[in-house]
Design a binder for these strands. Structure first.
Lengths: 222, 222
DNA sequence: GCAAAAGTGTTATCCCTACACCCATGA
DNA sequence: TCATGGGTGTAGGGATAACACTTTTGC
């Protein structure tokens, strides 16, 4: 069975840059390609748009199929379409970026890609297609958004300490923050509540545990 | 001649929301559709991506063909792809928005669309497809960008007065600004220079004329 | 008691905001 | 001389930035 058109049509894919925080590092989810082109290279999870499928749904479905990752914050990033970006045929890639807390991710389940794995952003392998460019753009957008939205909260597990949250901000912005000022600021948003619990985490004073009052919403602030 | 694929492919278009400032109003460029669907409705300029053409080039080419408008600030906005957004076939639209100073636009030249015309944003006609949604998003992005970039300068003619520039900001942000504060702020950017000339524009003191030191660059500020 | 991270306030600085009058021109 | 928009400075308030010591725990 084939499909005919009067004019040539490009293929459309979605590709997703999924970030998480693992081992105190910002990490990115990649899958190893089992087929040519770029066989053996690592690539962003993604794939071809089905003909009756929404763009967002396609991104979510491919992610679920290839990596088992589900239930994450997903946002459209940019659409890439250089004519030579895929050697097989003309491919337009609608790219997304996504954030998932480390405790929600269960990579093994349901993966039908050969391999899926997390890589620290500082140690990315050779990437297929123009995916390095996509990742760079996603990384910039993510850093910029920490300044005027609560997007960073999407990387947090259900409960966390203020120091943990501060570390996430420091990693995303790639700069050291002042502890007192950070706490004043983040508490003034009124989006956190104490659980009442404390976390003993070594030979030192235990930290108060917080949770988001509104875990699924990303707020625009300032 | 037809083109065959093993899997169904969507069509890809670009559509552009072109803004200008005319008669002290923010206006949008629309073309009247000569064919079904939505025959007779107004729509954003745009059209199908050619198979060897960059996305940006497609947006520029369609704009040039349909409206004669050329040499403008163009930026990708968002990609729309609801499965039912076009009744003919599945169409993914990569949308852009663009700004052009009123003195650069020459609508008549080279238009091959039935009609092209400027509409004040407050008085848009019935629009084809999901173009109303696209325009809304472009309008929001434009207003937001006045706060952290010099994108508004792209609506200015080669030379202008500070009052004219202030008016543009007021229209984009839809709020009144303080004259002294605006002037202090805009001059502190160090992106304007006096031409030395003055503009006599009525029964009152003539205004100094300014130009951009760097007309083609949009600066990220703050 | 010592090491290590948690927790906590005050002060200085900067930026943004508010605000009113004189100037140059054409009629 | 009058009407009209052009042009100018200062002071107050709010937010941000800088900064150091005490607390609680495990060993």
């Amino acid at each position: 069975m084939t499909f005919e058109y009067q004019y040539p049509h490009p293929a459309v894919t979605t590709d997703v840059a999924v970030f998480t925080l693992l081992d105190q590092q910002l990490q990115l989810l990649l899958i190893r390609r089992g087929e040519e082109p770029y066989k053996g290279h690592w690539a962003l999870p993604g794939g071809f748009l089905e003909i009756d499928e929404d763009l967002d749904s396609c991104a979510k479905r491919e992610l679920k199929e290839e990596t088992g990752v589900d239930d994450l914050y997903l946002e459209q990033l940019y659409t890439f379409g250089r004519p030579d970006r895929d050697p097989r045929e003309r491919v337009i890639s609608v790219t997304y970026y996504a954030l998932v807390p480390a405790d929600k991710l269960n990579l093994s389940a349901g993966s039908d890609a050969a391999e899926a794995s997390w890589f620290p952003l500082q140690a990315l392998p050779d990437l297929a297609f123009d995916h390095a460019e996509i990742i760079l753009l996603a990384r910039e957008r993510l850093a910029a958004k920490t300044h005027y939205s609560t997007i960073a909260f999407q990387l947090m597990p259900e409960t966390f300490t203020l120091s943990e949250l501060q570390t996430v901000y420091e990693i995303l912005r790639n700069e050291k923050l002042d502890k007192r000022n950070f706490r004043k600021w983040v508490l003034s948003l009124q989006l956190l509540e104490e659980t009442g619990g404390k976390r003993r985490n070594g030979n030192h004073r235990p930290a108060k545990i917080y949770r988001l009052t509104d875990p699924d919403r990303v707020h625009i602030i300032r």
